[in-house]
Write a protein that binds this DNA or RNA. Structure first.
Lengths: 214, 214
DNA sequence: CGACCAATTGAATTGATTCAAGGTCCGTGG
DNA sequence: CCACGGACCTTGAATCAATTCAATTGGTCG
């Protein structure tokens, strides 16, 4: 089975945005605003819809039995989330910093399957990337991978925003927020980054970051 | 956008096997046998094909800059692998213990998109599950999650086979093989499992394992 | 200005890794 | 058939890194 290159070609840095636009334009609907930390859907809710981030950032989370939180993904403007397996959501989605979200409505058999596939592959690629980052041994390596991911998705050159707080980053990387803070300091002391403000990171040595994260 | 429940209903424990069968039957092809540790495709090879495991186990891996190996996924009989983003494989695939693999050939526009979507979602769900396991803090928790995954996919009741060696499990969980060995001992000493042989694990207390891994 | 929340930093502890030494299993050859 | 060799697994002890708990700093909003 050869996957049509039309599907794949959209799936690298663009993150399936063409497919998302096609779906969104096919049947426009209203954008809902979710204030900071507002729940978009909860664990156990009926699944099946897809959501398009218009602006802001969304996090996809899951709570463990002992009350810890694992963040599965962050989604930025232009990205689509909501793919899941069963009839119920295994994860819950929240607005990180105030986000506008549009539900994608559409008939089931209107020839959008190729677009759906492209979007699903985008999510798959992100998940695979996250697997790699989570599997890295040291905190500094994880953080380097995270920062590079942010750079790529924000299409920023050297100053990248961190719209989520340290504990979000920690739960995304499987660390504590103190360790995130310390790892940032290590990268800073080694001259790989600068931290002009709490929510901004300037890349000083992208090559060194990539070597760490590779 | 409402994802057709036909796609989703196949995507839980069955792991998209119906879709895989439909694709395989659509255009049968020969099965290739890959001996232990044989490479099925290499990092950098042209991507685009999908592969069906007929028997045996396949691992999907990636090497890091400093020579460590991250195993992204294991695939068992009946499962499909090979989904990737760009034109080149970002990962490499190897036979773990001698595996029969069939390349899925087919015309690009023969109405198989729904099946492709189902399979891609299956891979996505597995990747998400793996994210959760990798994010767990302790080695025992990771191992509990891994064992439960094996139980589910082998459809075994209480004795589950571990066809891969300790170092494979370690690279899958982001641990060292010594830590895997020690974590197994912990689970054994706590009465959650028995280890009748090196490659077999008997579940004694599935509920406790689930509590650990949840 | 003061209160509050997030982030940083410090010190002690816990847990995984590292390095090293046996132990087990299995296939091969005498 | 048994002994040997090699690969894999287990176990031990020391080290190192992340967590935990606690204190302090920084920034924001009323």
């Amino acid at each position: 089975m050869l996957i049509d290159s039309k599907f794949r070609s959209e799936n690298t840095s663009q993150g399936g945005r063409l497919a998302a636009e096609r779906l969104a334009n096919a049947q426009p609907s209203a954008t809902t605003f979710y204030p900071e930390n507002a729940v978009i859907y909860a664990q156990g809710d009926a699944a099946g819809h897809l959501y398009l981030v218009e602006f802001g950032v969304v996090r996809i989370c899951r709570l463990t039995a002992d009350g810890r939180r694992q963040i599965n993904a962050f989604h930025f403007a232009g990205e689509v989330f909501g793919f899941e397996a069963g009839e119920e959501h295994q994860f819950y989605a929240e607005s990180v910093n105030g986000a506008g979200v549009r539900v994608l409505h559409g008939s089931r058999n209107s020839g959008v399957a190729p677009d759906l596939l492209a979007l699903a592959l985008t999510s798959l690629v992100r998940a695979q990337q996250h697997q790699l980052v989570l599997g890295r041994r040291s905190a500094a390596e994880k953080l380097a991978g995270f920062i590079l991911d942010m750079v790529e998705r924000q299409e920023a050159d050297d100053v990248v925003g961190l719209p989520m707080q340290r504990s979000d980053v920690a739960d995304y990387l499987g660390l504590t927020f103190e360790t995130v803070s310390r790892a940032l300091r290590v990268l800073k002391d080694d001259g790989l980054i600068r931290v002009p403000s709490v929510s901004q990171i300037e890349i000083l040595d992208q090559t060194a970051l990539e070597d760490l994260a590779a």
